[in-house]
Design a protein around this nucleic acid. Structure first.
Lengths: 117, 117
DNA sequence: AAATCATATTCCTATATCGGAATACGTCAA
DNA sequence: TTGACGTATTCCGATATAGGAATATGATTT
């Protein structure tokens, strides 16, 4: 009996995929073009199996595509999946400008509060 | 001896904080203004402790601020932390337009390849 | 102080992940 | 076929979470 409780969504969505710093680095490198696993690994200073695992996650969420190229396997970027993330955060754009004022007010209130304690 | 290996970064950064769907929903609700925990929980159909835990994560990464309001504690949005995410994904903007073409070509190649197998 | 309402925390369990090491798999060349 | 090279997978171990339930903490009112 496999309980479905505990950890809801997993690495199978883009938000989770890019939550890992090293995977983000990989995506950045891939903007320059296609890379074989080994070179990516070397560039990022990680062992090859580790690179392969991260690439697998990226592939599973569709951020990366691979194709055979002789002995090698070249990984390439498919950035379309990042668009929803960009748009989601974009929905907060007007707030992070606002936040400054609001925050100032907030901090001000806090100080008042402290003095009153 | 606490090994530092295993899971690199944790919930202590924004990317991870927003990797959780429910936390994203919270942030969206918070755009409408400040909310007490209980109402947020109810709106999202989750128990109060759960909401508190998620809010704690959001607070720790700075996406949310709270202030006392009588018996209640009102949570408010501080969207500034989302800006880096927006900008990071924005760095791929020109690629997700491109991707269509590149992908078409890719898929085309794939078909060729399959036929040759 | 006691009761009450609002929120945070703790304890426990199930699972998800990351990393390393070893190894399996695939492909090309001799 | 056998090497050799490039890449993926499997098998650990350690840790990070998420959720639930129960409980502790805070603040307000009577």
């Amino acid at each position: 009996m496999i309980s479905d409780v505990a950890r809801a969504a997993t690495t199978s969505d883009v938000f989770n995929a890019i939550a890992e710093p090293q995977r983000r680095q990989m995506l950045v490198l891939l903007r320059a073009g296609e890379w074989p696993v080994t070179e990516l690994a070397q560039e990022l200073g990680m062992a090859q199996p580790r690179a392969s695992k991260h690439l697998r996650v990226l592939r599973e969420v569709g951020l990366v595509r691979d194709r055979k190229a002789g002995k090698q396997r070249l990984y390439g970027l498919d950035a379309r999946g990042l668009r929803p993330v960009h748009e989601w955060t974009g929905g907060f754009e007007r707030f992070w400008a606002e936040s400054f004022d609001r925050l100032d007010a907030y901090v001000h209130d806090l100080k008042q509060q402290r003095q009153e304690d």
